[in-house]
Design a protein around this nucleic acid. Structure first.
Lengths: 335, 335
DNA sequence: GTGAAAGCGCTAACAG
DNA sequence: CTGTTAGCGCTTTCAC
């Protein structure tokens, strides 16, 4: 049998209440009883029951983290940030994965709610479904979207400036004379895709260049996808002097295909990724990409979530973390 | 106010108990009341309180997962496996990271116990500390070590055959005439390091080759480490025709240094990694490595943990998942 | 300083 | 088929 407050109370002759006070370091307890009780607790291997405790306390000190795709190091990094701040603040994390499936997302959140999480950090899918939005609006706890948004609930998001990022990528390419760009964009149901597509269009507009025929593919985001997309483009006889990728993982597949097709990077084709994963600097050629502050994103999300937990009246407010185009060896133009 | 069983009971005129039964789909409840109550529950937006429920039930349906280093995709993959099986079995996961710190490991586990987890899956550090072993022996819940072991508690481990893996690497290299091998081994306080070192020695013994002067470095496991180690080795004038790496991440750093030093892989130097991360196939040259069934490891760990949760009498038993040397472009010898 | 009593939301044991 | 009672381990309120 596991030791409880009662066990200790019986063993020391004090009341359950006094034991509880001592173990919570409540004031107005004599030093003597305190050491006595603490000694006994230690001796009996007492482990406080946080579950029982949270039945009476208003907070469970648990948050739910809903990740989209655990096989992508991008999300691992974000969660690391969340984890770090959560630890600082004393929260435990319940974690689940949706694999980009909106109904799994809702299901997970229901499970978390049932476990009485104090708040949620979510990387959501399906930015536009009305039903999905309604689901979130009805949530009884604070929630923050990390790195993505849901239409109509933009306030709840901590974002990285997707428009800026992709605009800077295209501005760079357009300024350097590229006019046929293969744009391997992301899945249609995540908000980053739309945001980056807008960034691209802004670049064309800002430079007064008409986007001729568009070479756009929407991919799921795996290396395979990038590999196949380039093969397809090549087979179809598409011409392009640059490939812009939705993420670094796609870019890896792209580099592979290009290399197999004897196209030299960056001489024949320039390639730019997105996310700046740790691995990207070790690609050959080292991948130029858009650096996203992944860790900071998670850290910030947890920080803001906590503020909303502490103060439910606090109005929500989008934040946009800055991104930065990182030039490495897969690009060669004038910066 | 959140709806509870009581709220629903009052709203429908039934007792709390009846409501509870309906919502748990208990038998012997008339269809009529059942639909009535379920309807009301839906209407009130009732969310069951799993916390309160687990105060009375013997199981909390929560497990604790203690990962070692969340920045390494190896562990993400393992956790993905755990997660998949956990979901199948209906468990929620509490996750924490130790960053290879043994006291953080114990601290995390205490927190998890205090949250009444039904069991633990741990990637432990400090294989040899008596105190650490004692800590685990005293644990009041079932626990499984994934991919590593602690001396004296080997039974609790689901492993991947580290000896076999490293032996096959060295046998390959020795058979192909390599006699000066730079061996970038792992951190001294994780069990895989020792196991793989033994595998290496077995290879020398099996082939009757005396390991001349040893070129062994023990690294923490980051890409930087591999990069610096090769630079150091080169600066010291060490000669080697092959580099064996503790993991693929180290190998990335190694490839980078080699390339910068105009050493051609595999012509001048063969390089072999360990883990077979998704990225490794996209390295240039594509990395030869030892494939470890990461996902299966996690999946299996959760499966076995559940067996022990269901039946606490069940004796623990080490399992060893097979590994396989994968040849790609960073090696060139006869297989 | 310390104790007694109530109750968080739920399930289980017993009753009818 | 349904209700009553007790209690999980803890914290809170109110006493003294």
């Amino acid at each position: 049998m596991r030791a409880t407050l009662k066990t200790i109370a019986e063993a020391t002759g004090f009341s359950i209440n006094t034991v509880s006070r001592v173990l919570r370091n409540d004031r107005r307890i004599s030093n003597e009883t305190s050491t006595l009780i603490k000694g006994k607790a230690e001796e009996l291997g007492y482990i406080p029951d946080a579950i029982a405790s949270s039945m009476r306390k208003p907070k469970s000190m648990t948050i739910g983290v809903v990740s989209a795709d655990s096989s992508n190091p991008f999300f691992s990094e974000v969660i690391r940030g969340v984890s770090e701040k959560a630890e600082e603040l004393g929260y435990q994390m319940l974690i689940g994965n949706t694999e980009e499936n909106a109904s799994k997302e809702e299901h997970l959140i229901r499970l978390f709610l049932s476990r009485k999480v104090d708040g949620l950090i979510v990387m959501p899918t399906s930015e536009k479904e009305e039903k999905h939005k309604a689901f979130y609006s009805a949530l009884p706890v604070p929630y923050i979207f990390a790195g993505r948004y849901i239409e109509g609930l933009e306030d709840h998001s901590i974002l990285h400036s997707d428009e800026d990022g992709e605009r800077s990528v295209f501005e760079y390419l357009l300024r350097n004379g590229h006019r046929s760009i293969l744009y391997l964009s992301g899945p249609e149901n995540v908000s980053n895709t739309g945001a980056r597509d807008r960034g691209m269009e802004e670049a064309f507009r800002a430079l007064g260049i008409a986007a001729e025929k568009k070479n756009i593919f929407h991919l799921a985001g795996h290396a395979e996808d990038g590999y196949k997309a380039v093969n397809t483009a090549l087979n179809r006889g598409m011409e392009f002097s640059a490939v812009v990728c939705f993420n670094d993982i796609i870019a890896m597949g792209v580099l592979k295909s290009l290399s197999e097709n004897d196209l030299s990077v960056p001489d024949d084709v320039e390639v730019i990724g997105y996310d700046n994963l740790m691995f990207s600097q070790f690609m050959k050629p080292a991948l130029s990409t858009v650096d996203v502050p992944k860790h900071r994103l998670g850290y910030k999300a947890m920080e803001v979530l906590n503020e909303h937990i502490e103060n439910p009246e606090l109005p929500y407010r989008t934040e946009n973390l800055p991104v930065r185009l990182v030039f490495r060896d897969s690009t060669a133009g004038k910066r």
